[in-house]
Computed example of a mutant assay.
Amino acid sequence: MTPLALAPPTAEPVTLTEARQFLRLDLNDEDDLLATLITAARLMIEAAAGRCLIEQPWRIVLDRWPGNGEIRLPLSPIARIEAARVYDVLGAPQPVAAAALTLDRSADPPLVRVTGELPEIGRNHGAIEIDIVAGYGATAAAVPAPLRQAVLILAARWFEERGDVASRDARALPSAVAALVAPFRRGRL
């Protein structure tokens, strides 16, 4: 299974205005840097939590359908399945009916269950594509407050302590940020 990001989120969980207020910045001459740090902090928090914060489109690519009829998705939370297709023997995409796949959002990790008829697979690799939308919601308001705060603190830390602090944080999140992310981490067995 290969997850492919199709596009970045249309918004960030923290706005430039919120970050400027948090940092007590009156001028906007460093907005480009601050916007980059907010994006980088979101990516770091998403990786640490194992969750997408703002809705973003992804494609899940599979070679074949699982024998048990359940696909455990590597992303969480999942808002919806947008489309699915199977490539036939000629390499043409054949749509999968919406009723053939059911999303179980309550499972962690989320599951897609095969619940109907599926088109015939025609190639050995990358035969199945499922387009999904992952994230808490389309706006920052949908993101849990502790995760938004973690993004804000991390971006502010990188802004204030420019230099090699980002490389130190890549090895281990600062303890205050890690504590905010901890309740949202996906467990692994």
Score class of each variant (00 low, 15 high):
128 I>M: 09
68 N>S: 07
70 E>R: 13
84 A>Y: 05
141 A>C: 00
92 A>F: 12
40 A>H: 10
119 P>K: 11
82 E>G: 04
122 G>A: 04
139 T>R: 15
49 A>H: 05
113 R>Y: 00
97 A>F: 00
121 I>T: 15
99 A>S: 14
121 I>Y: 08
73 L>A: 09
153 I>T: 11
151 V>R: 07
43 L>Y: 03
99 A>T: 12
150 A>Q: 06
47 A>E: 15
60 I>G: 05
48 A>V: 03
95 P>N: 06
134 A>L: 10
66 P>A: 06
68 N>M: 01
95 P>V: 10
83 A>F: 12
120 E>F: 11
125 H>P: 00
113 R>I: 01
52 C>D: 12
66 P>Q: 05
86 V>D: 08
45 I>C: 04
79 A>D: 15
91 G>I: 04
121 I>W: 01
109 P>R: 04
82 E>D: 14
132 I>W: 09
157 R>D: 14
117 E>R: 14
118 L>H: 11
117 E>S: 13
113 R>N: 11
72 R>P: 00
84 A>K: 02
127 A>C: 02
153 I>H: 14
47 A>L: 10
138 A>E: 14
87 Y>F: 15
127 A>Y: 04
87 Y>S: 02
65 W>H: 01
105 R>M: 10
67 G>F: 05
120 E>V: 11
78 I>T: 02
49 A>T: 12
44 M>V: 04
82 E>R: 13
102 T>Q: 13
